[in-house]
């Protein structure tokens, strides 16, 4: 079987969604862990150093290219699948099934993904673009120059309730997307043993609550003056 046939079949397309999704889940772990440095209560010294490492070291910079590729693959394939699948029923039902037998978030991955995409565009323009392209105010730690990303976070979130709310909504979309996506990714990879399915379901729900909650607490912390 040719690779092209394998990855363009209905199962292969889902495999791409599964693998790119798991890759993005791994990225979330790195992202949330690094950002948690804002709570070191040292006016952002640890966080700015950590962010500096991610921006200056060659390994994370190369991985960053992979990250963008992973995002693009997941977004483009996801949208393509959503439209292809919808087109398989040209004439719909007069009485819809609604949530009978299928929870709303399991059927709304396209919508949730699109909301996350909109959030992502705003998020990248807030932080990645100034840090990597247009430039940020420098800060000096032990005489060495660093990008003041901590200061940038403070500027974006402090006294800006609208942006804080948009970030929290983005995190809520992410949470619901993960509740389905986490375990669905493993089922697509062929997990059939119920012992492991239960484990993955539990891990998935835990991950979907803890990680988006930690992310949501970041803008809230700046707004409330906790950091």
């Amino acid at each position: 079987m040719k690779w092209s046939d394998f990855f363009t079949s209905s199962v292969g397309k889902k495999l791409i969604m599964s693998l790119s999704g798991l890759f993005l889940i791994a990225f979330l772990v790195v992202h949330v862990g690094l950002n948690a440095c804002i709570w070191a209560m040292d006016d952002g010294v640890m966080f700015n150093k950590a962010a500096h490492f991610m921006g200056a070291n060659v390994v994370p910079r190369v991985l960053e290219i992979g990250l963008f590729a992973g995002f693009l693959l997941h977004i483009i394939q996801g949208l393509a699948l959503e439209f292809q699948n919808r087109s398989n029923r040209k004439k719909g039902y007069a009485v819809k099934m609604g949530s009978k037998g299928s929870a709303w978030y399991r059927k709304s991955m396209g919508l949730l993904g699109t909301l996350i995409l909109l959030f992502l565009i705003m998020h990248i323009s807030h932080f990645w673009v100034p840090s990597r392209i247009t430039g940020l105010e420098p800060t000096y730690i032990d005489g060495k120059e660093y990008h003041d990303l901590f200061g940038r976070m403070a500027a974006v979130f402090t006294d800006n309730i609208g942006i804080v709310i948009l970030y929290v909504l983005g995190c809520i979309s992410l949470a619901w997307h993960l509740v389905h996506g986490f375990q669905s990714a493993f089922r697509t990879l062929g997990l059939t043993n119920h012992k492991y399915i239960r484990l993955i379901n539990g891990l998935g729900i835990g991950f979907s609550i803890i990680v988006p909650l930690a992310f949501a607490l970041m803008p809230i912390s700046f707004y409330m003056g906790w950091v």
Binding site: S10, V11, K14, L81, N85, S102, A103, R106, K107, T188
Partner: peptide, 8 residues
């Protein structure tokens, strides 16, 4: 279509 595990 392809399966997205909606469980319906």
């Amino acid at each position: 279509g392809s399966c997205t595990f909606t469980e319906a």
